[in-house]
Computed example of a mutant assay.
Amino acid sequence: MDFDLSWLLWGLPIAFVLGWVASRLDLRQLRIENRQAPKAYFRGLNFLLNEQQDQAIDAFIEAVRGDPDTSELHFALGNLFRRRGEYERAVRVHEHLLSRGDLSRAERHRAQHALALDFLKAGLLDRAEEALRKLEGTAYEGQALLALLAIYERSRDWVQATEVSRKLDASGQGNFSTRRSHFLCEMAALASGDEADRLLREAAQTAPDAPRPPMEMAALKRKAGDAGQAMDMLVKLAGSTPSAIPLLARPLAQDALACGRQAEALAVLQANYDQSPSLDVLDAIASLQTPEEARASYVRHVERESSLVAATRWLAGEKFEHEDRHPPVQRALEQATRPLLRYRCAACGFESKLHFWQCPGCQTWDSYPPRRVEEL
């Protein structure tokens, strides 16, 4: 059978026309998708920059509906939910991402980290811990370890906190030896006898320059009735860490009175006071002096430092013509000086009448200077 060339002549133009129409339709559809999706996405970004979070969420939801396979839109939406405190919706977004089979390994780790942050912000510490543990060996391991450390400190799980701090040291995230020393001291406070002594010795070896372990060891000896050895530890600490003397001044004076070594303690305290006057050191010195000597010490301090606290201490031992008026005046002055005798956290400003190694307000370690508010 002969081939009819007329079909070829007709077929080529028709095929060309059909191909051109199909390409135009594809281009048109692509342009519509590219025009719609970014429009909603950038509108959401504009709302976000203007701190209009409700409108930003609506825009991102619209963008996600238009392109449900785009992971970046899901991450943006989940982060917005978390920032607004809508943790359940944030969890659903990130769990949906983890359930997808087309996510790359890096995006899966990112979604796992975001999910852990959702649980952490929501206060679900057990679920946050589980999610953070799954990030071991990923690019988010360092951040996960820091978050785990915060969880264990918050729950006062000092054993786990010690383990995580060692991992952080090994990973090069910083030096956590001083903080680990605090953890060991916290464990020692819950122990007794040889176990407490062992933990405190390990704490001292972990952070040789930290003042807390030797102070806790001295307290342990004092509790056991060995005031002389307790004083030896404090005198040694005073020589190596002079900045800690305001914290150990009163225990040192008490130990000196208990073992009859007042002159030695007085020399150590006076030498430090001459270099750096402190109310706590001044009170410890006064406790080792006669009443007349103590009042003279308070007067010299007032002459050197303008101190309402020292003036009130001096006034308490003075004799006046109208003795019946002295007690109410003294009580009023003591009431006025109470706020000046507090310690203040350098990180958050939380004030307390006690010195804390970890701030109860912001949970920061070693943020309380060993100085009263009046001295700051």
Rank of each mutant, 00 (worst) to 15 (best):
A227I: 02
S177M: 11
S171Q: 12
I14R: 02
A336Q: 14
L30H: 07
V299G: 01
R261F: 10
R261G: 01
T364L: 04
W10Y: 12
M233F: 04
H113P: 00
A150G: 05
D197Y: 11
K221F: 03
N175T: 11
D283Y: 08
C185H: 11
L98S: 03
A286H: 04
I57N: 02
Q143E: 09
Q289A: 03
A265G: 00
A139M: 07
E88A: 14
R300Q: 12
R342Q: 10
A258C: 03
G260P: 04
T290S: 12
F47E: 15
N46H: 15
L149G: 01
Y140A: 07
P277L: 08
F47G: 08
Q143I: 04
L148C: 10
G85E: 06
L248K: 00
F16C: 08
A131D: 08
A263D: 15
P369T: 07
S99W: 13
R325C: 06
Q143A: 08
D255P: 00
D255L: 01
S278C: 08
W314L: 14
V373P: 00
A310T: 05
Q53I: 11
I245K: 00
F119N: 07
I57L: 12
S155T: 13
V93L: 02
L97A: 01
Q270D: 14
P277G: 06
A311S: 14
A253Y: 00
L12A: 08
G11W: 09
A267M: 07
C259L: 03
T364M: 05
H301Q: 06
V302Y: 08
R156G: 07
I285W: 04
Q270W: 11
V302N: 01
I245E: 01
E318L: 13
N50S: 14
S23T: 09
E202W: 02
A161L: 05
W365D: 13
L266V: 00
P13L: 04
R65T: 12
R179F: 05
A139K: 12
L30C: 03
L8M: 11
V64R: 14
G174N: 11
G193M: 12
A310L: 01
I32S: 10
K223R: 13
C362D: 04
E351D: 03
S367R: 04
D194Q: 15
R35N: 13
L135H: 10
E51D: 15
K319A: 09
D157P: 00
S278V: 02
S367W: 05
D226R: 04
I61V: 14
D169A: 06
S99T: 13
F176D: 04
L199D: 09
F176W: 13
E292K: 03
E318S: 13
Q55E: 15
R83A: 10
L103F: 11
P370F: 06
E264W: 00
L333V: 11
P13T: 04
E292C: 00
G225E: 09
I14S: 03
G349E: 03
K121D: 14
L200S: 03
S104P: 01
Q55N: 13
A244P: 05
M233A: 05
R127L: 11
D102R: 03
W357I: 08
R371M: 09
F42M: 14
L333Y: 13
